[in-house]
Write a protein that binds this DNA or RNA. Sequence first.
DNA 1: TATGAATGAGATTTCATTCAT
DNA 2: GATGAATGAAATCTCATTCAT
Lengths: 215, 215, 215, 215
Amino acid sequence: MENDYKSKDKFSSIIDAALKVFGEKGYYNATISEIARTAGVSEATIYEYFGSKEDLLFAIPGEITSQAVDFLESMNAYIKGAENKIRAISYGYFNLYRDNPDYSSLVLLDLKHNRKFMEAEGYKAVQRSAGFMLNAIQEGKESGEFREDIDPYLVRSMILGTIEHFFFRWHLKGRKDEIGDFIDPMLDVIIGGIRNELEPRSYQINITLPPASTA
Amino acid sequence: MENDYKSKDKFSSIIDAALKVFGEKGYYNATISEIARTAGVSEATIYEYFGSKEDLLFAIPGEITSQAVDFLESMNAYIKGAENKIRAISYGYFNLYRDNPDYSSLVLLDLKHNRKFMEAEGYKAVQRSAGFMLNAIQEGKESGEFREDIDPYLVRSMILGTIEHFFFRWHLKGRKDEIGDFIDPMLDVIIGGIRNELEPRSYQINITLPPASTA
Amino acid sequence: MENDYKSKDKFSSIIDAALKVFGEKGYYNATISEIARTAGVSEATIYEYFGSKEDLLFAIPGEITSQAVDFLESMNAYIKGAENKIRAISYGYFNLYRDNPDYSSLVLLDLKHNRKFMEAEGYKAVQRSAGFMLNAIQEGKESGEFREDIDPYLVRSMILGTIEHFFFRWHLKGRKDEIGDFIDPMLDVIIGGIRNELEPRSYQINITLPPASTA
Amino acid sequence: MENDYKSKDKFSSIIDAALKVFGEKGYYNATISEIARTAGVSEATIYEYFGSKEDLLFAIPGEITSQAVDFLESMNAYIKGAENKIRAISYGYFNLYRDNPDYSSLVLLDLKHNRKFMEAEGYKAVQRSAGFMLNAIQEGKESGEFREDIDPYLVRSMILGTIEHFFFRWHLKGRKDEIGDFIDPMLDVIIGGIRNELEPRSYQINITLPPASTA
DNA sequence: TATGAATGAGATTTCATTCAT
DNA sequence: GATGAATGAAATCTCATTCAT
């Protein structure tokens, strides 16, 4: 039990240190040596736990992403309506990226560019979360909330692309300012652009007729 | 003059080679040695023209981007209407990225992640093009095409983020398939979401009133 | 007693595993880790029994060689004639090397090149067996089977050198084919080259003289 | 021309240094660092000339062996008689090994154990020289100098095995004493063992009959 | 201007070995 | 006695960069 704890601890220390160092310097400018120093272990110990520098990189998102995705999944059941689900998932990404800046830096600046990552285990969690988003959009089409002619993949790409773009800039500018909440206005635009207007529209028109003129 | 020409030639060879090699392998996995081989010059010659590997990287987008942006600018004057301008600029990006895959790989996968690039000369062209987009959106607000309450920065980020997202995936998947034209549907959604519906709509409704009853 | 037995067992497992791994990969390419895995013990346990990797290497031939040499010694008493003894000892080497390929690989490719091995315990058995060979040759000189002028050290070196050379090649070629029996033809040549031809020949000639003529 | 000289010089320095260091410490205990120091170049320079430590190892015998084999070949034409050729080639090996102890250490203790070396370029020279020996033995069979029933491969293995055995021991014992000339006595034994005795023998028998006794 | 040649400075990775439990 | 866990110490190899010619 103690051993288990200790192991967990060291494993986690390394992951945490790697997240920090990779997040700050980027994969290529980070060194195992610095990660080891940050984790308080020897370089050799890192290789006891991870086969290579790349393995270590790929091992990071597994836990964090999985946790976040699990949460999203559990939440998903309680939310009614495609639009609400999309908002929830979007905020899931937003909060995850904002509250774990090293993580988002890592994912956006290093992992996403790595072809091999797409074959790695940790990528599955990313895919799962992307799947939720797709399902929500699809659900909206089926329920009639969204127009029939929209492409769910396009919409998802727009949402994710926008989120990534904002965090991208945030990281490049040194994460100095708090990142503003762009999620709601973004979704207002996108959902406004895909909402099925036929029915609702009739309800929203108020016409005040001018008094009939009498001759 | 001959020297100038010759120099220009060598300079261009290096830039071209660097674009190709960086684009294919990424900045960190590219070597000066391979660039030199590709350019048909010696490694030392590269250092005659560029101070460092990073300088070489930053020097690449300058020409290509500038050219593209110049074209956009010249075109801009002939296009009427914010929406049309946005479409034109978006297609400018799209075509540039699609027709120059090494360039887009470089920009999206390497340059965009480099803080120092934001201080480099080549970044200015990128900024100029982004400025056009912003102006067009702003113009749409002023003309009443777009709603008053929308944030032009948000809209621009959505457009650019979506474009980048698509090309991102294209590169990661090995540029195998042709990249589909997502620009029109994307703008349909976004512009649909920001269009000022008040005025136009009133023109499209035809109401036939029942004859007024007289009492 | 149980402990002793258990210990003996573990000791042997390690020796066996080391013989296998060293024999297959060579000393330098073998790792303690693989030996431990093969032996079914932990790496640390190996260090309970042997002080270092080199100690382990040197410990291996002791038992095998000793056994083989004991057998040779016991047999030696029953064989009459230098030539027969030489043949018997040569076949002893041949069978030992052929039937224990990992052992012969180890001895020929690793141990024989190690200066320190000459100071190690296991080397003594090797020396003992080489001593038998020398004695047999010497015996042949003394008995008049072999010429007076031959150098027993030379002859021994020729026999051992040839045997080693053949097994060497066998190992380098991957032990694919069965190793042919070169011992008899080799000894035919060598013994043919050192046999004392003077006396024996006179015994073997039968001359039938013509009847003596009387004057 | 100067460049050529300089290059040749550096290339040779490295080969020489590698020969020395590998010869003294063995391949695995030698370090690139020490070879670089010995050669008076940087470690990186070694990698400019040779792709890897193993490449460097394999590059060594090429020159030395080739030279020696060329000499043997040119000499071969002038020597008459199989026996003389065998003696000449054997002395070729002997002198080469004795006069270049680092080289013979390298060949006998490192290269000969390396399976990959058998596929390397430098191995060809070794094979060529072994071919000469085989041819000479074959020639002796055809000319009737040697018996019909002997196996040339066996004889070659005996000669080479003996030579290697002697040098082996010499190296293991620290090359302290001069290595004695064992070639002539060795060949006396071997050639004595394979020489075609039929004709000559009849000439050598002298029988002195005792005076006939009269009864 | 152009470059062949050289290298400084590190980075990743491996493994024999140790030691607390 | 047995071992899981940790690491010190190196070793090979890479590459951007420099400089004499």
